[in-house]
Structures are given as structure tokens and as C-alpha cells.
Write a protein that binds this DNA or RNA. Structure first.
Lengths: 155, 155
DNA sequence: AGAAGCGTTCAGTCTTGAATGAACGCTAAT
DNA sequence: ATTAGCGTTCATTCAAGACTGAACGCTTCT
């Protein structure tokens, strides 16, 4: 592989490692995803461990969370016992769905607290309801954006 | 204050403490904002420290980050040396702006890496460009949402 | 049956960063 | 001039969770 490409690959992987912490993913999760995205090809379980220089235990745990989030797919090839991983079909949508989900949760919790307030705290109640509504709106907006993006940029 | 209200207030403050970690804010920052939002009124610096049961050092640091993010305002009243804090005029917009900004940063970094790739990595380049474009789109979408919300729900 | 390779699990280690609280500089009051 | 109250800073403490690596169960091959 070209020297420059190798450097850029390392740079991208490292960046993804810390950029996705904002999505609640650990550094290794981000690096795995970064590796798979950069290469665009599938990698075996052991490949990931040696390539990233991390323990197999870490690969096991982090690959699972990536799968649970819909960002990565696991598959097997006939006659090979190894697990292979590749970027999921709709990683962007999965990313948005994750944020949307957290917004929705926020909205529901705050809304629940607001509704449980007595009339003597009417002002606080409307204030929190507004806050809950805001998050619900953003949540819906994200889901909408995910659909629009899927339609506009089909694979 | 009503017993129920006090409980709900504590619940909301605690929730905000950990819900805003997703925005890169520390628990104390979230709790300060939660307190100000629930009460809707201004609180003094010392008030915050004693009310939340945290050190003044923590209030100093966390209040500043909230101000930097545009979520909280600091002001002074004549004849009183204390600093007072209240929720900013546009907290929702500030919240969205924060997410938007992080998306934009993501887009720019990834886009920069993509553009620096040689032709021999053309596929990776288009893949990463697409990824960068996605984040740029979401970033713009969030800013748009902030404006729409500000117009639709003026104070 | 034994060995080798696979992925998972879990107890222990290590790292990170949140929070503290003492020390400080500043201003206002006595 | 001294004291008291304010907010900031920084070295230190503490806690959360990321990561490791040995132990394990399972499957396949010899």
C-alpha cells in the first residue's frame, strides 16, 4: 500500500476513535468502524485485533456494540470458521437513528416529569413541556432526514 | 415548597446531570442547567454551590462552560458583588448549534482526509467524501431547525 | 483422543477526567 | 490597615469505564 494512503488511513482511524465518543462509543469501537469504512472491504475478527493492536476480547465486545447499533454487519463465508465484519448497508441512517432515539428518550422523560407536576407549579410545567416538545421535534426531524437521505442517495 | 415539587425538581436535576453528558457536558454542568431551567429564576453563585452540594470551584468551572455554550447567562445586580445566573434567552438554539458545530467539524476533518487521498485510492476517497457530505448535510439541517424553531416559538 | 483455532467472558489493571478544597487575587466594607 | 466575601485556579483525590489477558466452551482437523 502507498505510504501516503497508509498514513491517511491511520489518521482517519485515530480520528474516528475519538470522534465517535460523542455517540457513546468507545475508542476501539470507533477505530473498528473507521478501519472498515476506509478499506470498504470486509475484515476477519483476527485481522481487526492484530491490525488495530488490541486484544481479541476488546474486538469481541466492541464489534458487538457496533452490530447492535446497526453500524456493522457480521457474516460468515463457507468453509471458514472465522467471523467477518463489514460496514452495514445503511450506516448513516443508523447513526441518525441513534441520535434520534436519545432525543426521544430525553423528550419522554422530561415530558413525564412535566406532566406529574401539580397546578401550583404550572409555570415550570409549561417550561418543561416546551423543553420536551423541542426534543421530540428534533427527534422527528432526524428520522425524517434519515429517510430523505436514504431516498436521495440510494446505493 | 410542595413536597412533590421538591422531589420532581431533584429528579429533573439528576436526570439532566447525566442526560447532557451526551452533549459533552459534565454532570455538574447538567445539574446547574437543570436547576436553572426548573426554577426559571436566577440563582446566585453561592446558591448554586450550596443547593447542589458541590464545591465553589466546580460551580466556577462548570458555569463558565455553560456560558461559553450559550446555555446560561451571567449578570450582576447593582450593589451586590455576587454573580447571578439564569438560563440564556435561546437555550434550544444553543443546544442545536452545539451539535451542528460538532457535525461540521466531523465533516471538515473527514473531507480533508478524503481530498488528500491520491487517485490510487479513488474509491476510498469517494466513500469518505460521501461520509463528509452526510455530516455537512445534517449540520445544515440542524441550523435550519434552530431557525425554524426560533421563528415558530418566539418568546 | 488430542490439538489447534475460534469467539466469549470476567476479574483485574490502568487510564481518564470529574470533583474537591486549599491557596490566591481582587474588591468592598469596617 | 485589616477583615470579610467573592470568584478563580491548580495540585490532589477519587471514581468510572476502557482495556487487557487468562480461562473457558465450542468446533474442526489430525
Amino acid at each position: 500500500m502507498d505510504q501516503t494512503i497508509a498514513e491517511k488511513r491511520a489518521e482517519f482511524v485515530a480520528f474516528m476513535g475519538q470522534a465517535l465518543e460523542g455517540q457513546g462509543l468507545s475508542p476501539i469501537s470507533g477505530r473498528i468502524l473507521g478501519l472498515l469504512m476506509f478499506d470498504g472491504t470486509a475484515r476477519s475478527f483476527s485481522d481487526l485485533a492484530t491490525d488495530l493492536g488490541v486484544s481479541r476480547g476488546s474486538v469481541s465486545i466492541n464489534a458487538r456494540t457496533l452490530i447492535q447499533r446497526g453500524l456493522v454487519e457480521k457474516f460468515n463465508v463457507g468453509g471458514d470458521r472465522q467471523d467477518y465484519f463489514r460496514v452495514a448497508a445503511q450506516p448513516y441512517e443508523a447513526l441518525l437513528a441513534g441520535i434520534s432515539e436519545r432525543m426521544r428518550h430525553m423528550s419522554q422523560t422530561v415530558g413525564g416529569i412535566a406532566r406529574s407536576l401539580p397546578d401550583s407549579a404550572a409555570e415550570t410545567r409549561t417550561r418543561l413541556s416546551r423543553f420536551a416538545n423541542f426534543h421530540a421535534s428534533v427527534s422527528e426531524g432526524m428520522e425524517h432526514a434519515a429517510k430523505v437521505f436514504a431516498e436521495r442517495f440510494p446505493r
